[in-house]
Amino acid sequence: MLQISCPWCGPRDEIEFRCGGQSHVIRPGPPEEVDDATWGRYLSEKINPRGDHLERWLHAAGCRRWFNVARDTATHRIRAVYHMVEAAPAIGDEGSAR
């Protein structure tokens, strides 16, 4: 049970959130200029790293806002929480715990 700090509401239990998967995915387009392989990668190929993963979460049972989370998939340590419009943060070894 993760504890996630919603940027709007503060720390809350994981059960209040929904994970929306990998963040910063660029949607290819317009459709007429995208080949099948590129579209297939967009649909199906998600990274699955051991370590830091940038992903988007929805505070579904709270403020209903989406935001980004940098989470270590091995330890579940949350290294950063940032807004949808922000660029991915540079994460050093001294990322903030939780």
Binding site: G20, R27, R56, L58, A60, R64, W66, M84, V85
Partner: peptide
């Protein structure tokens, strides 16, 4: 409703 919000908040900011 959640679907609309997701596109609005994550793609069409």
């Amino acid at each position: 409703a959640a679907w609309l919000e997701e596109w609005l908040q994550c793609e069409f900011v």
